[in-house]
Nucleic acid binder design. Sequence first.
DNA 1: ATCCCATGTGTACGAGCGTACACAACGCTT
DNA 2: AAGCGTTGTGTACGCTCGTACACATGGGAT
Lengths: 177, 177
Amino acid sequence: MPRRYDPDRRRRLIDAAIRVVGRDGIAGLSHRAVAAEADVPLGSTTYHFATLEELMVAALRQSNENFGRVLAERLPKDGQGDLAADLAGALGVWLGGDRTGVELEYELYLAALRRPALRPVAAEWTEDATALLARRTDPVTARALLALLDGICLQVLLTGGSYDEEYARAALARLIP
Amino acid sequence: MPRRYDPDRRRRLIDAAIRVVGRDGIAGLSHRAVAAEADVPLGSTTYHFATLEELMVAALRQSNENFGRVLAERLPKDGQGDLAADLAGALGVWLGGDRTGVELEYELYLAALRRPALRPVAAEWTEDATALLARRTDPVTARALLALLDGICLQVLLTGGSYDEEYARAALARLIP
DNA sequence: ATCCCATGTGTACGAGCGTACACAACGCTT
DNA sequence: AAGCGTTGTGTACGCTCGTACACATGGGAT
């Protein structure tokens, strides 16, 4: 059997897990599915991640990093423009084209509702995101903005409705003192 | 075999499904689990609800009705008090004691993210709730308030943090023109 | 009274799952 | 170079699941 001693087998497994969740949702996440997606034997996934929750934790953490990087790009510290407009624009980009990515990230994020093991990672995300927003406003407002962003995004995704950027901008603007 | 011709077998199955989701989460929802919980044979659940999604749709709809009833009680039309305070208070009651109920309702609600069949029901809920809030403010503000409520509630539930009612009241108040 | 069909019941099948475990291979320490 | 522990591999067991299907039953239309 070739491919022994794979140096970053863990990372490849995490990437595969993210692809599986993106395609079939968390309901389709299994050791076997990840093994097939990463093209490794079943035993390898159970060795590196004894529990599916461990795999989810790792996937959510990596997913958060991706999300944070994009948010940081779209929210320069020295931006003197309208913060509400910037945020509404970022949301528009996320929800604009293919929603697979956002759905994936939200599904992992929301999984924390029933899986205490994921909660610290979810808390990490909100803290990091708040810190990012706090570069342009005070921390309390940042938290509120993040909550409203979550709520708006969620309503669009859950109801299958379309995203109204101008409405979002106006609502966000009201939160900024 | 006794108990033939059960007049409201459907309702009993839905109630059982809600109890199952409340106890074990959507991941634990199965025809067999519902059958055991409702004390009916397996074939009966598959007869009334061919798909688990059908069962979820029915459960979410009933769950929404419960939620809406509570919200209507705590939000009298003739209330001349502080709307933001009322909403923050309602959230406090929900998140105060046993969170099992809220977690159950949110889990079903959030399931719409990956299950298009649930989206119309989720959309129904946001419309009904918006209409309820619109008795005390304008429709646009009502929608924004609902989104912020969702966001705050979600952050508390996902991160496992505690609920700060005064913070919520202040944030909600900013949305009211 | 008779018949039909919605409703209820029991059982079986095949698939997918987590888990466990024995064994193989290889780097690292000594 | 020898031994050991980490990493990788293959297989098998027992469980739960959705689904299908044949049969039972009784209410309601005729």
